[in-house]
Structures are given as structure tokens and as C-alpha cells.
């Protein structure tokens, strides 16, 4: 089932966990758990871990307030892509 989840990320577009769950025939809660495990194992990365929202380097950061709540996203890591290539 983990391989099926990873495969979902080798093609297609942005998908909410509910859609992934429907495709895998399971529940969003289980998809969330699998996603966490795949992040822990280095197959997926989350945008929160990528530190993409840092404004620290901006000269205007002291007069700016644009950091909004960002949606959480997950995508394949190089390890995840390698695993999927092997599968093919």
C-alpha cells in the first residue's frame, strides 16, 4: 500500500489525502499515517521541513507581515523517486 501511495506521486497533479484515500481504497486518516511514515523513512518530504517560508533575509522583514498559514504539501524525495524507478 505504501508503494501505491508513492506511485500516486509519480504522475498526476496536486491531490488531497481524501482523493489519495479513495484511489487506494482506504481512509484519509490512514493516508495521513502512511505519509508520516514515508517522511520518517525519507521517501517523502513536506514543505514545512524545507524551510521555504523564511523571510529572515529580506531587508523589509521588520515592516512586513506576509507569512500566512501555508497548506501542508508532500512530494517525493530523491530516495522516493529512486524507489519508484526501481519498481518500474
Amino acid at each position: 500500500m505504501l508503494q501505491q501511495l508513492l506511485r500516486q506521486l509519480t504522475h498526476g497533479q496536486l491531490q488531497p489525502p481524501e482523493e489519495v484515500a479513495r484511489t487506494l481504497g482506504t481512509t484519509p486518516a490512514l493516508v495521513a499515517q502512511m505519509t508520516e511514515q514515508l517522511v520518517a523513512r525519507g521517501y517523502l518530504q513536506s514543505n514545512a521541513a524545507q524551510g521555504a517560508t523564511s523571510c529572515a533575509h529580506c531587508p523589509l522583514h521588520t515592516v512586513c507581515n506576509t507569512i500566512k498559514r501555508q497548506p501542508r504539501l508532500w512530494s517525493l524525495t530523491a530516495k522516493g523517486e529512486r524507489a519508484m524507478r526501481k519498481e518500474v
Binding site: 496536486l14 489525502p17 501542508r72 508532500w74 512530494s75
Partner: peptide, 9 residues
């Protein structure tokens, strides 16, 4: 390059 995402709604 084509990368897909899971995004929490």
C-alpha cells in the same frame, strides 16, 4: 520535470 504533491485540504 513533473512532480505531484499530496496537499492537505
Amino acid at each position: 520535470e513533473q512532480v505531484a504533491f499530496i496537499m492537505e485540504l
